[in-house]
Design a protein around this nucleic acid. Structure first.
Length: 799
RNA sequence: GCUCGAGUGGUGGAAUUGGUAGACACGUUGGACUUAAAAUCCAAUGACCAUUGCGGUCGUGCGGGUUCAAGUCCCGCCUCGAGUACCA
């Protein structure tokens, strides 16, 4: 009776076998921490998950076989809005809904053959986890990294909560896709900007990160070097100076006005002194009435109003008019700019509209200046008094120095990065552990009272924050005093900023983790996930790591040594999505072909970092290969190798091992699989042996763990194939006795001859020159030069 | 606008340091097996020309350059994609 490949019956049995086998223990081996971004437990695995987790599983299984002590955890990012929305629309409790989904997803992950350290599993919505969110929040608070501030914030009208800057993509909420609105409220922030410089600088140490992600973070942090210039008020000698940030101090002598943002504190303080205050107030009102998104758009016409107040130019002392302008953003720099219309496009547009003077101070060395536009390039200074004749670069230094020495300027960079707004007005998240006394002064909850758990008496009617209406949650009595609880919960990105630390010590009840255990496990050697988190999760996680380090909780400065961003899974060129109705459910593929086929297709279809177009015929192809592989290994004895071909078989095998080893380490799974396909093709021609078949079972193990196990068992292997060592290759089989020496004439291939390996140049050239195939090309030609590349080719250069 | 990244057969994609372009697979075509189909196996498959046989020309987005030799290196463009944008 011949056994055939029947994954649908064997895969479930193999899962049972694995459940009874002890995990391989390699305590003294070098560690390898393989991590994939943990999923939100929506209840269903999608193809993106399958791709992400299969990639990680290949690495984990490979390194385990290669002798490493592999850490390969998984968990659930289980706080977040869908649970609460399910409660609102279906009346299901968020906790029940979440736990049910986790159970289902855990099954799906196991069914895919993913080999995780299940004992490390964490779910962020459990008090045992979010307890330490609160504890860490307190540490941050004590360190001065947490503060409360009122101001305009991004409000997502669909999710009914505020969002951090990073979480607004193209003016829309990152999750809901709804256009964000501006709201003025009190919120909790974390001082990520304190670490802006280090977050930027350390990107250079991340040599194993994709440049794309590093560039995105660099851009997001947005450092700009420049000078802050102080303009002294002329209208009141006691008034504060107006600080202006500029990257072009060289143009200072061309200033024709200073403009502040309508929200600038100066306005509130000194506008009363303005002769024009009525009109100014009206103008400010009209600007603030516009949505901020519109004001932030460069195509919005520039408007402004002269306050009538005058400032002193920091070098000449001349009077400079102070304007309020809609194009100056309070959010960036000092919220005030110096207007140099001759050398800045925006200032030029503004000055033209309001007929302000345009004073050219930079001479373009190549073309004469025209008044029709601003010249923003480098040049030589003119009309700049003592600075005339200097180059742009020299003038930047000279003018800045002059300002600094007279106390009218400081040299300091500004960053685009904003502090991280972590308040959320929703129920299903970590309660911020703060109490307010009767005066409204916040104070942190005592460590002994942590965790602050979510109340169960909430009503999910979709109106407002359920925590505000909870009787159990709202107030506490401490030492006879009544305190109001903070009802904001934390951004779920807080949860995911340190979960990979918790994995190292997942059940610790006394601390988030033991620092000595963390130091043994971290940094993560390989982190795999989608690029969509380039400026969100990956930036927050880097920031957390630096704070944890400064708190003495870990020693690493960067959490992820190597980052791999996999491409999306598409269907017919479009992103798979429910709204397009073009999703392919992994569960269906597994039911039809088994998990190995799904895994193999997803790995073979495209390089890891590129988008993968799902193809039904491609899946068929993968299934077909597994069938051929099964026959070629389990039924190797149908065609035992002939003695004459034994060496060829060995060479083919060792070449395959070498290529696959190399390719797996470089994340080139598609070519690793194609190498294995070539080996199967070769075996169909020349036959195989038991030893080769057993080696092949080990070779396919990281990619298709089920078929590997089946073949291993059929071939008489003991235990599990996943407990075996990764095959090694030896150099003696990697060099053939002979090879085809390519013969070129003037760089063009004209034929080849079979010659022994290591043939010396003189003999090779001699054989090549006399080769029959190239004779016609040498008639009446003189060989002017001969190029010889050992074991590859001979090139004759002829006239 | 700025900053990255990518352009290779009908398709997905291969090609250490410049050294046989198109591995492997999908698709297509033809054949074997079968009453028939499915499955499986075998063969062909960049384009064009020649075809009795050998063969030849072109070809990695476009235009130049370096080199005995360029998908790969250099210069200048084009197209597509991503991120970001009144950031001073």
């Amino acid at each position: 009776m011949t056994v055939t490949y029947s994954p649908l019956t064997t895969e479930p049995k193999i899962l049972e076998k694995w459940a009874t086998l002890p995990l391989p223990s390699r305590d003294n081996a070098p560690k390898k921490y393989i991590l994939e971004m943990f999923p939100y437990p929506s209840g269903h695995l999608h193809m993106g998950h399958v791709r992400n987790y299969t990639i990680g599983d290949v690495q984990a299984r490979y390194y385990r076989m290669a002798g490493f002590d592999v850490i390969h955890p998984i968990g659930f990012d289980s706080f977040g809005l869908p649970a609460e929305n399910a409660a609102i629309t279906h009346g299901i409790n968020p906790l029940e809904w979440t736990e049910k989904n986790i159970a289902h997803m855990r099954n799906q992950l196991q069914r895919l053959g993913l080999g995780y350290d299940w004992w490390r599993e964490v779910s962020t919505s459990r008090p045992s986890y979010y307890h330490w969110n609160q504890w860490l929040f307190k540490k941050f608070y004590e360190k001065g990294l947490v503060y409360r501030k009122s101001g305009y914030v991004n409000w997502d009208p669909v999710d009914q909560t505020v969002l951090a800057n990073e979480q607004v993509i193209d003016g829309k909420g990152w999750r809901s896709g709804a256009p964000v609105e501006q709201k003025y409220i009190d919120q909790w922030y974390i001082r990520i900007t304190d670490y802006a410089e280090e977050l930027l600088r350390d990107l250079d140490t991340l040599t194993e990160w994709p440049d794309r992600v590093k560039n995105m973070q660099r851009q997001w942090i947005g450092k700009s070097e420049g000078t802050t210039v102080y303009f002294t008020p002329l209208f009141d000698p006691d008034a504060e100076t107006t600080a202006v940030f500029t990257t072009r101090p060289d143009t200072l002598m061309g200033v024709s006005y200073v403009a502040v943002a309508p929200e600038h504190p100066f306005v509130m303080t000194y506008l009363t002194k303005s002769p024009n205050r009525e009109a100014c107030m009206a103008y400010i009102q009209s600007v603030l009435a516009e949505p901020l998104s519109e004001r932030g758009d460069a195509s919005t016409p520039k408007t402004g109003i002269d306050t009538g107040l005058r400032l002193a130019h920091p070098i000449t002392g001349e009077s400079v008019p102070l304007w309020i302008a809609n194009y100056v953003l309070m959010d960036y720099g000092t919220g005030a700019v110096m207007g140099v219309p001759a050398h800045d496009d925006r200032d030029y547009a503004f000055a033209t509209a309001y007929d302000l003077p345009i004073i050219p101070v930079i001479q373009d060395p190549d073309t004469p200046h025209t008044a029709a536009s601003a010249y923003t390039g480098p040049g030589i200074l003119v009309q700049s008094g003592a600075f005339n004749g200097l180059t742009t670069d020299a003038a930047k230094t000279a003018i800045s120095q002059t300002l600094v020495s007279s106390g009218k300027g400081t040299i300091k960079p500004y960053y685009r990065l904003r502090d991280w707004l972590i308040s959320r007005q929703r129920y299903w998240g970590t309660p911020i552990p703060i109490l307010y006394d009767e005066q409204g002064t916040p104070q942190a909850v005592d460590d002994g009272d942590l965790p602050v758990t979510l109340p169960t008496d909430c009503v999910f009617d979709g109106v407002g924050n359920p925590l505000e209406k909870s009787e159990d949650f709202g107030y506490v009595i401490r030492d006879g005093r009544r305190y109001r609880r903070e009802t904001d919960t934390m951004d779920t990105f807080f949860d995911s900023s340190w979960y990979f630390y918790r994995y190292s010590d997942p059940t610790n009840a006394d601390a988030p983790f033991d620092p000595t255990i963390v130091d043994a496990c971290l940094p993560v050697d390989v982190y795999i996930g989608g690029i969509e988190h380039a400026c969100l999760h990956l930036l927050y996680a880097r920031f957390f790591t630096k704070v944890l380090r400064d708190l003495g909780l870990c020693r690493v400065s960067e959490p992820f040594k190597r980052l791999v961003c996999q491409g999306m899974v598409l269907y017919e060129g479009a992103k798979m999505s429910k709204s397009l109705g073009n999703t392919v459910d992994p569960a269906h593929i597994i039911d039809e072909y088994g998990a190995d086929t799904a895994r193999l297709f997803i790995l073979f279809g495209a390089p890891v970092e590129r988008d993968l177009d799902w193809s039904d015929t491609g899946v068929e192809g993968s299934f077909r290969f597994l069938k051929r592989f099964f026959t070629a290994t389990v039924h190797w004895d149908q065609k035992p190798v002939e003695a004459a071909d034994a060496a060829d078989l060995q060479r083919a095998l060792h070449k395959t091992i070498q290529k696959m080893t190399h390719d797996i380490e470089r994340f080139q799974f598609n070519t690793a699989i194609s190498a294995l396909m070539e080996l199967v093709n070769a075996i169909q021609k020349i036959g195989s042996s038991l030893a080769v078949a057993q080696t092949m079972a080990r070779l396919i193990a990281p990619f298709a763990p089920f078929i590997a196990e089946t073949c291993w068992t059929h071939l008489g292997g003991e235990g599990s194939v996943h407990d075996q060592s990764w095959p090694t290759y030896s150099d003696e089989w990697l060099t053939a006795d002979s090879y085809p020496l390519v013969i070129q004439i003037n760089g063009k291939r004209r034929g080849d001859i079979q010659v022994p390996t290591d043939l010396p140049e003189a003999e090779a050239v001699d054989l090549a020159r006399n080769a029959v195939a190239i004779q016609p090309h040498l008639i009446n030609k003189t060989i002017r030069k001969t190029i010889f590349v050992k074991d590859r080719l001979v090139n004759f250069v002829v006239n």
